[in-house]
């Protein structure tokens, strides 16, 4: 995509106009404006796209190139994101139209599927009650983008819902067996958290 189009300016715009358009967009899509964490996340992607576009224009102008010359030489700038589709998919997920969101995400070619793609697919699977698939998608998202807290939290919170069942039973006086229902897994997870604090990590996914 033409970086001038990303910023919404014409190729003949002055440096000042470009800077202004860039600043306005960054302000507009600042992740703090979005309360919903999914939208917030998508806004981050948009900011990344805007930054790439701005840097590309700077580079082109420094070399005195037009976009046609630049792209003939370097190909399209790689924004690393499918912003528009993600945004629509998030809206569809929020509306509860999971089939539409999934179909949209599956249109994204395989080489462009990044952490956000796997995260959103995981979110859809989770809402369908496909927890095993959700776990696999979230794990993939974390592996692709290990520093993203949203993905890590999604993976860790996936199993948190089981607390609902355990607590519900306990409230009715049905004591949970101490050996019961995956205490060992929790212990492992705690141990992993401690390890991560010390710089190690023996479960890669969380």
């Amino acid at each position: 995509m033409n970086p001038y189009e990303v910023l919404g300016v014409s190729e003949s715009a002055s440096d000042g106009e470009i800077k202004k358009a860039y600043r306005n967009l960054v302000k507009k899509y600042h992740p703090d404006h979005y309360k919903d964490q999914n939208m917030n996340h998508v806004a981050e992607e948009k900011i990344r796209e805007i930054n790439v576009a701005y840097d590309t224009i700077q580079k082109m102008r420094a070399n005195g190139q037009t976009y046609a010359e630049y792209s003939a030489q370097n190909g399209n700038p790689h924004y690393g994101t499918e912003f528009a589709r993600y945004q629509q998919a998030v809206e569809e997920i929020q509306r509860g139209d999971l089939d539409a969101a999934q179909a949209r995400l599956l249109q994204i070619p395989e080489q462009n599927r990044d952490g956000a793609w796997y995260y959103l697919m995981g979110e859809i699977a989770k809402r369908r009650g496909w927890f095993d698939s959700a776990q696999q998608y979230f794990t993939a998202a974390v592996q692709l983008d290990p520093n993203n807290m949203l993905y890590r939290n999604a993976l860790q919170n996936l199993y948190r819902h089981t607390q609902y069942y355990r607590n519900g039973g306990a409230q009715r006086g049905y004591q949970a067996n101490t050996d019961d229902l995956c205490n060992c897994c929790q212990a492992l997870w705690c141990a992993d958290c401690c390890c991560e604090c010390m710089g190690g990590d023996f479960i890669r996914c969380c």
Binding site: G129, Y159, H161, T162, Y164, Y165, C182, C184
Partner: peptide, 20 residues
């Protein structure tokens, strides 16, 4: 493996949620 059992337990948990 343990994770597989957790996914089954998640189903139980969603049964309980709906039931409540």
């Amino acid at each position: 493996p343990e994770t597989e059992q957790l996914t089954r337990e998640l189903s139980l948990s969603h049964i309980a949620e709906a039931w409540e």
